[in-house]
């Protein structure tokens, strides 16, 4: 076991983690934050995307013990109270969700894009979401929702 201190969705946390435990497992199994989804465990699907020190990364590929000192935001940290993040709002408005399993990863990846580029074009949106896989929407509704947001 190893002691880890980090900031999680704005709150300071101190936890004890296993040597080989992933950040994803820590979030879901111990910190009761199941929004980041566990699917491929190899960085292929993007469903567990979180922000770590300002970068969008796959939580399954972060060793929990190596998250010490970092600032982590999960999908649970995107909304401000009852007010959805603009990206969440856009996906709701545009129907950019079907089964919803991949949605948290898309929300975090898209929020990361809009942070640095408030009016991305279609190619920039596609590029930013290229690490996120959705098996049911065919991406069209997700892209249109975010293009609408980019034009607001």
């Amino acid at each position: 076991m190893s002691d880890v201190d980090f900031t999680l969705n704005g709150e300071t946390r101190s936890v004890s983690v296993g040597t080989t435990q992933s950040l994803l497992s820590l979030l879901r199994d111990e910190l009761e934050l199941p929004g980041s989804k566990n699917a491929c465990e190899q960085g292929e699907c993007g469903s567990c995307t979180v922000l770590m020190d300002g970068a969008a990364v796959c939580a399954c590929l972060v060793l929990a013990a190596d998250a010490d000192g970092s600032d982590i935001t999960t999908v649970e940290g995107m909304a401000s109270g009852d007010v959805l993040h603009a990206v969440q709002d856009a996906l709701v408005a545009g129907g950019g969700v079907q089964c919803g399993f991949c949605t948290p990863g898309f929300v975090v990846a898209a929020a990361h894009l809009f942070e640095s580029e408030p009016s991305p074009d279609r190619d920039q949106i596609r590029e930013a979401l290229s690490g996120n896989i959705c098996r049911c929407t065919g991406y069209g509704a997700i892209l249109r929702s975010l293009e609408d947001l980019a034009q607001r």
Partner: peptide, 16 residues
């Protein structure tokens, strides 16, 4: 982490 997640490696000592 892929190797760890899939159980192919079980490092006891890690230098990050």
């Amino acid at each position: 982490m892929v190797e760890i997640n899939f159980g192919h490696r079980h490092p006891e000592h890690i230098v990050a």
